[in-house]
Design a protein around this nucleic acid. Structure first.
Lengths: 141, 141
DNA sequence: GTTGACCCTGTATTATACTACAGGGTTTAG
DNA sequence: CTAAACCCTGTAGTATAATACAGGGTCAAC
């Protein structure tokens, strides 16, 4: 497969050409090989990596967190047990996010139902949606 | 119930006292009534609102988006149909986030399994996890 | 009645994550 | 062979979401 130019990876991943350089500086993508003239030559899967970064950001992960996620792979620098441990921690974080999003979705569904029916309630069920303390062990029907 | 001071709501919601003022300026919380001396007096549910803001942020919502979420309630300014419509859009966004987090969790689970067993693989399954294009209709076992 | 912990306002500074030049080199299509 | 469209580096500027004062007022407890 032919290597891609910076514009090509940027367009394919729906990020700007400048963002690509920025992510390289932030060590979120590897420094690619260069041509004689110094042009970057990206392997095709850099596009995946860039898309992953964007999506993970929209899920509330910061760049340092995303760097950690991308580092979760077995390599000579880290032991398998270490990776497994870190991955399990991330899984927990993710489960908490999923849980919170589910509560939020439920609250919004209650809103659409309220608005569908008689339509004159004005409390704010969404407020309780993500309330960690309040939600302990009493998920409302 | 007694109203709370700024420090009290801030502590209860685990945000800084300055953040409370900031959210007021950004119209994410209402301007509370004041004492004679000009001290803010917060109703208890401001704590919930602040916690909602923090949690929603960690799920990747920006302050303008959170403002929109908090505005999803029936009141004289908006029609029920309008609210229902906007709530349904938000539900879709949320479902997409949940979907993405599920893929990510699955990828991490694959990593822990890989590391648990023979432990010498070094591909990066997480990269494919959030790849919208690649994941169309072919969820891997 | 003064000390410490809190309150007020306004403004300045910071961190994160980009985005936008400036000033120059390269490559490809016509 | 030249013009458009890309590439390079470095540095400066922006938006968002806070955080940190400065300079002063209030209140409750000792």
């Amino acid at each position: 497969m032919k290597p891609l130019t910076r514009k090509q990876v940027a367009d394919a991943a729906q990020v700007t050409i400048e963002a690509v350089r920025f992510y390289e500086k932030e060590v979120l993508i590897a420094e690619p090989p260069r041509t004689e003239a110094g042009y970057r030559q990206y392997p095709a899967d850099t596009v995946k990596r860039l898309r992953f970064i964007k999506r993970a950001q929209s899920l509330g992960f910061s760049l340092p967190e995303i760097r950690e996620l991308l580092a979760l792979r077995v390599d000579p620098e880290t032991t398998a047990a270490d990776i497994r441990h870190r991955a399990q921690q991330k899984i927990q974080e993710i489960e908490q996010k999923i849980q919170a999003l589910h509560s939020m979705k439920l609250a919004l569904e209650r809103i659409t139902e309220t608005c569908h029916g008689s339509g004159l309630a004005s409390e704010c069920p969404i407020l309780d949606a993500l309330d960690q303390e309040a939600n302990k062990g009493e998920p409302k029907p």
